[in-house]
Simulated scan of single mutants.
Amino acid sequence: MRYRTTIIGTGAIAHAHADAVAAHAERFELVAVCDLDAERGREFADRHRASAVFDDAERMIAETRPDFVQICTPPGSHVPLMIAALRAGAVPIVEKPPALSLAELDEVIAVERETGLAAIGVFQQRFGSGADTLAAMMAEGVLGRPLVATCETLWYRDADYFAVPWRGTWQSEGGGPTMGHGIHQLSTLLGLLGPWSDVRAVARRQSRPTETEDVSAALVTFASGAVATVVNSLISPRETSRVRIDFEHATAELEHLYGYTRDAWRFTPAPDSPHLAERWAADTTHHESSHTAQFADVLDALDAGRPAPVTMADARELLDLAAATYKSAFTGATVAAGEIGPGDPFYTSMRGTGAPWETP
């Protein structure tokens, strides 16, 4: 089946979406794009061979009746656009973070139940060579229990980056690196380790001219008993993205920046399990973590009648951990998974009761 898709927002990340559509041209057709900047929209459409350009998203969806709506706009607009797509009978594919709060995401989940359709979150770093091998080995049980992990997003963003009005604000971006940057590595970690149980955290605004934090650190306990440190930073001159998991019988670690192939992984068997090195090396695939890789899995799942990765239920677990990280950092409490619900100030905003640096 060849699916018809549209793209809303033609900024930098939209090119990755359009390139992924082109990579699956036998299964995807880009029928229209939408941008409030008509000139930018036209340039994007010409470059990526879209046949129509709109400046109104709902009109584009109504007139083109696509199968998919790819949402590449600033985070504050994600939820209303997802809801509009779902109610028009289209599947939204939305950039991270899909919503600014648990309350917003629950709105989307309610509309999913109403329409019978399911939105898809873009978390492309779950879909690279090495991650699938590790997941398979975990499922086989050959690695033993996961014991300890580290998850680091150490990036650098200067003041000019935050000159864009919606960046670094609670209202438009929802949070700092805990929400908008480290969420990729965190998604990879949760995809491998499964449900988390509680978190203790700190967050600081160290140097950037933002409302939100520019660094956070958390100690997360998982339902499996594994313990992980999670560090997110936008003030680190030597940038890196890192996930490491120490199992009973091996260590698997991934270091890259914005995307990886198998070469970015390092696998070290424990002294009593040297045979695991052969099992790891048996898979020689080298596809890069990317929108193209995730879209391939999405299309395969939909063709087979299975839920497409990553679901809003998966995204909710991520946002629950983000909200709990902020709540722990701002209140000093240990926060349990599922604790934050209606009536909790952190349910409707990651800012919750207010950041410590807001106090004069």
Score class of each variant (00 low, 15 high):
G175C: 13
A131M: 07
L100W: 03
A12I: 00
F222N: 07
S328H: 02
V310T: 05
R113N: 11
G89Q: 07
A308S: 14
M1Y: 02
D214N: 10
D303P: 06
P342G: 07
R47L: 09
G130E: 04
E211S: 06
V202L: 11
A22M: 03
A84E: 00
T6W: 00
A277T: 08
V122K: 00
S224T: 11
G341A: 14
T229S: 12
F54M: 14
A323K: 06
H24Y: 00
S216V: 15
P75I: 09
A163T: 15
R113F: 04
E39A: 15
P97Q: 05
A203W: 03
E152W: 15
W196E: 05
R42D: 09
T359E: 15
L299D: 10
L234Q: 11
A38E: 15
G194R: 06
F44P: 04
E278M: 00
G305N: 09
R47V: 08
L257Q: 15
V230D: 05
A52P: 01
T268P: 01
A329S: 08
F127D: 09
A14S: 01
G332V: 06
F330A: 06
G352N: 12
T188H: 04
R59I: 11
R126Y: 02
D272W: 10
A293G: 01
L319N: 05
I13H: 08
G11F: 01
S187M: 13
R316P: 09
G259K: 01
L134Q: 04
A149M: 05
M179T: 09
H249K: 10
G144S: 03
V33N: 07
R2A: 02
E58M: 06
C151S: 11
G338P: 11
T284M: 02
D19A: 04
M137L: 13
L302Q: 13
A201I: 10
P165G: 07
R42E: 07
G338K: 10
L102D: 02
Y347N: 14
F247P: 02
E63G: 08
D263S: 01
F247G: 06
P92T: 05
I71Y: 01
R87Y: 11
C72Y: 04
S224Y: 05
D35N: 14
D55I: 10
A336N: 07
A250H: 02
D160R: 12
M138L: 06
S290R: 01
R157D: 03
A223Q: 09
Q70S: 14
S328F: 07
F295A: 04
R4V: 03
W357L: 12
A296G: 14
A293I: 04
D303N: 11
